[in-house]
């Protein structure tokens, strides 16, 4: 059982610390495991701080997302490959991500939140951010994808010809 008044202090990779409710951290597999490993009673306060390998600016965004999603079902409902789709991002999450679009560094923000969600094992946030990235390249041509991701073509001419042959059915 999660006691809502229980607080957990998190320390970031750049030395900041924040105290949040267990209602938020219960969605993080990493933090929950850290608390379990402390082998303390759920009512015991204060806990030792949990160190997270995430910088403070990114953790702020993660906590903002967790606050909105604190009532989401647990365990996180995993979807099969057939059920996976990128166009079912909730409206609040879309607005949350779109706020970054006004910033010059929105691509880096998305990168940072994806890696933070992975490190903290927050499956809902990881899925949402990966879908956001997928949506940026879905429906794009090879050249458009290469431009968005800023990737050089490192294939040999022969390899490239083979790829084009294999892609003939799906080139737009």
């Amino acid at each position: 059982r999660i006691y809502p008044l229980m607080r957990v202090t998190l320390t970031t990779s750049d030395g900041a610390s924040v105290t949040v409710s267990r209602q938020l951290t219960k969605h993080s597999g990493f933090i929950e495991k850290a608390i379990t490993d402390m082998a303390v009673d759920d009512n015991a306060v204060p806990l030792s701080a949990v160190a997270v390998d995430v910088d403070d600016a990114t953790l702020k965004l993660v906590i903002e997302w967790l606050t909105e999603h604190r009532d989401d079902a647990l365990p996180y409902p995993e979807k099969t490959d057939e059920e996976r789709r990128a166009d079912d991002i909730p409206a609040w999450d879309q607005a949350f991500v779109q706020k970054w679009d006004t910033k010059e560094d929105q691509q880096q923000t998305l990168y940072a939140v994806i890696t933070a969600a992975d490190k903290l094992d927050i499956k809902g946030l990881l899925d949402m951010t990966c879908k956001t990235l997928a949506n940026k390249i879905n429906g794009k041509t090879v050249e458009e994808m290469r431009e968005i991701l800023q990737l050089e073509c490192d294939f040999t001419e022969e390899e490239l010809a083979e790829i084009r042959k294999e892609n003939a059915w799906c080139e737009n």
Binding site: A16, S17, V20, S21, D56, K60, T67, D105, Y111
Partner: peptide, 17 residues
């Protein structure tokens, strides 16, 4: 207890990525 409770200023911290 949510996002504004950091002990150090957020915006003065690292730039993301």
């Amino acid at each position: 207890l949510s996002i504004d409770q950091f002990d150090s200023p957020i915006e003065a911290g690292s730039e993301i990525g």
